[in-house]
Design a protein around this nucleic acid. Structure first.
Lengths: 208, 208
DNA sequence: CCCGAGGGTGAGCAAGCGCTTAGATCCGCT
DNA sequence: AGCGGATCTAAGCGCTTGCTCACCCTCGGG
């Protein structure tokens, strides 16, 4: 039912790197629970129950509930950063790279909207050191998008009066997909990605 | 320090309608606490403490913690809907009305980003009946924005291939301001509103 | 055949939770 | 002055929380 189970693509199977299997099952259960009810409203008993284990089993694989959230957040941010830097440092015109960045970033937020919701909205529940680590990853994501805009302006492809502000707006638009996207809705993740790439290109296009 | 205290404008003083004063102080304390830590991570003792009262005082003015959230959410959504319908049903071209809608909606999210954060991100913490009531208000907000887009397309002012999708994107862009806006940041709420109005007009402009 | 180590459990602890209750205090009214 | 309702508090009830601990399996190597 989840995105990872619909594709055989290893790149899109997010939790393959988590071992052993019991630890992965617990993590997947935690993602579902955190996304549905929020980190603070989720109990360790709920997570363990979804994974078909006793509450105590959680503490064999994770030191605390917060460590579980951190693992989820870290993996998600790594993936998001990888998508954006791949697009930013890829080939093609700035417009092509921007479209690719938005398309893949949005598709990821839509396909894995449960995961993305945890990744994007539960940042404040992390402890100070863990949060600082994640904030640094987000800084690099922002830098990747800004790089594309700067290139486009330099090459005369884009007309962007306020590059930092527009960078923020583009990322913000994509991130909010995780809040409203519903898998049962009318649009596929790919369709949303396409629409959003078009909208963003319009935002930066030279006015004629 | 909050927006309401910076302006004498009654329209922008959000909690004037809440009486008696103790009930208002509790509600303002709840807004701050919910915005900082989230609804579920906020304790009734924390709310009462911020208001300088004992935990039991809360239950003289509100039946439950959830009722407090509902009151906040209701007032916030009423205000948001008022801003959008005023712009949608105002005078001027579709472009002017869309710019006004985005400008005022974004400014509200930035000025009252604590309030807006509660209003936009704590919906799931409401009980079923309260949530249904709020969802209806949100439906009407969406309809107001769509109305402007439809008018603009009809009059040849806008080129919008996907009106429902673009409506969603415009609202989404504005709402996410509540997540990232920081009062200590470089931009004033008004500057963000201006930038966003420009970006949205670009998204719907006829391509020449 | 026994061993030891790692994955798992049932029971439960200390702390904190939302909320209630009995009673003190305040204040406008007759 | 004395009453009645509204407001507020100290204390605490019953329950749930994150997490721990003593113990039990299972299983590969001597």
């Amino acid at each position: 039912m989840r995105a990872a189970e619909r594709t055989a693509d290893g790149e899109n199977a997010p939790w393959g790197e988590v071992t052993p299997e019991a630890a992965r099952k617990l993590l997947v259960a935690a993602v579902e629970a955190f996304a549905e009810r929020g980190y603070h409203a989720t109990t360790t008993r709920d997570i363990a129950g979804r994974a078909g284990m006793s509450p105590a089993a959680l503490y064999i694989h994770y030191k605390t509930k917060e460590e579980l959230l951190h693992r989820i957040s870290r993996i998600g941010h790594d993936r998001a950063l990888a998508l954006l830097t791949a697009a930013a440092d890829g080939e093609g015109t700035a417009a092509q790279r921007l479209a690719e960045a938005v398309h893949s970033f949005v598709r990821w937020h839509a396909e894995g909207h449960t995961t993305a919701r945890v990744v994007q909205y539960e940042l404040d529940a992390l402890g100070p050191e863990h949060r600082a680590e994640i904030v640094e990853l987000r800084r690099r994501s922002t830098a990747a998008v800004r790089r594309i805009l700067v290139d486009g302006v330099r090459d005369g492809e884009f007309d962007v009066p306020d590059v930092p502000g527009t960078t923020l707006a583009v990322l913000s638009l994509c991130i909010d997909v995780a809040r409203w996207f519903n898998a049962a809705g009318a649009r596929t993740p790919d369709e949303v990605g396409e629409l959003y790439a078009d909208l963003v290109l319009r935002m930066v296009a030279t006015q004629k």
